Simulated scan of single mutants.
Amino acid sequence: MKSALREIVPVAALAAGGVLTFAVPASAATTVTFDCQADAPVVGPQQLTLTQNADVTAPATVAPGGTLDVVVDPAANAVPAEVSGYQVKEIKDFALKIPVPANSTFVGADLTGGSGLGSTPPEITVSGGVATLAFPGPIAGGASFELPTVTVHLTAGSAGTIETKLAGTSYDDPGLTFTAVVNQLVDISAPTACFPSPSPVFTTTTVG
């Protein structure tokens, strides 16, 4: 399952951290690896690994109380047509959790572009200090898609740093969830929970 499923994760919305000062911006091509468990009926839990690439750009410095932006530009991706002998019918109900970084305040987020994500566009909501990027899909098996570019607006806190990363530490505390629908005589829905392993720091902005 590992190699077959490695391209299905829409991790573009990695978000949070950055700036609007006259600093030299930092830019990084980032690959996130997710450790996932699909709760498949009859056959039981299935472990798999998923990856997604994105270019993450943020400023190097920001003044205390200053406004900041971070831009996440996800790479194009594709849903596999088949996994371990199972036909992939569709992938749906994506939700990616992004903690609002310590030493910053979430102001808002803009989504631009994106394709192949279904009729309902992605949205970002914030609750309890966590921003969630979500969309229902579905995306058909074998189809190509690209998540929108995400620009997250923050206000810097006091002197120190602002680090950006994803949520999730275990299957019970996931940072990414979705449902895979596969077919082998009948449709099987497998709710899937993932966490980044390892969990990289995407950007570090110095406040001061």
Rank of each mutant, 00 (worst) to 15 (best):
Q47S: 10
D187F: 00
G65D: 00
T105E: 09
T205R: 05
K2M: 10
I139H: 01
K92G: 02
E7A: 09
S115D: 07
Y86P: 01
A63H: 07
I162C: 09
T105C: 00
V43Y: 01
V32T: 13
A12L: 15
L48F: 05
P174S: 11
T51L: 05
V107N: 05
T105L: 02
T151G: 11
G114Q: 07
P101C: 07
S197F: 04
L176I: 12
T206P: 04
T112K: 15
I8H: 12
L147K: 05
H153V: 03
L111Q: 10
V9S: 13
G18D: 06
S119L: 09
A29Q: 15
L48M: 05
S170L: 03
L5I: 04
G114Y: 07
Q87N: 04
E7G: 10
L50N: 03
F178N: 08
Q87T: 06
K2D: 13
A143R: 07
A16F: 14
G17A: 12
V43T: 06
A156M: 02
T30N: 12
L185Q: 03
A95M: 11
D173E: 14
T155Y: 02
V56L: 12
D69T: 12
V72E: 15
N77K: 10
V182S: 00
V24H: 15
T51K: 12
T112D: 14
A193K: 14
F195L: 07
C36R: 01
P41R: 00
T161A: 12
V43D: 03
P200Y: 06
C194F: 05
S3A: 13
T192H: 00
T125D: 08
Q37C: 05
P136G: 05
V79K: 09
F202H: 13
P25S: 13
S115I: 07
N103W: 01
G116K: 07
A40M: 06
P136R: 01
N183R: 06
T51A: 09
A29C: 11
T125I: 09
T67M: 06
L14S: 12
T177P: 10
G160S: 01
V181C: 00
P99W: 08
P174R: 03
A159Q: 01
P138K: 02
G85E: 02
A16D: 12
A78N: 13
L68K: 04
P122I: 06
M1F: 05
L111P: 08
A12H: 12
S197D: 08
R6Q: 10
P25M: 15
F34G: 02
T161M: 10
T57K: 15
D35I: 00
A60N: 11
T177I: 14
E163I: 07
P25C: 13
V186K: 00
A16Y: 14
A167M: 08
S84C: 09
G175A: 04
T206Q: 05
E146R: 15
D187G: 00
G142W: 04
G157L: 02
F178Q: 09
A63V: 11
S144F: 06
Q37K: 11
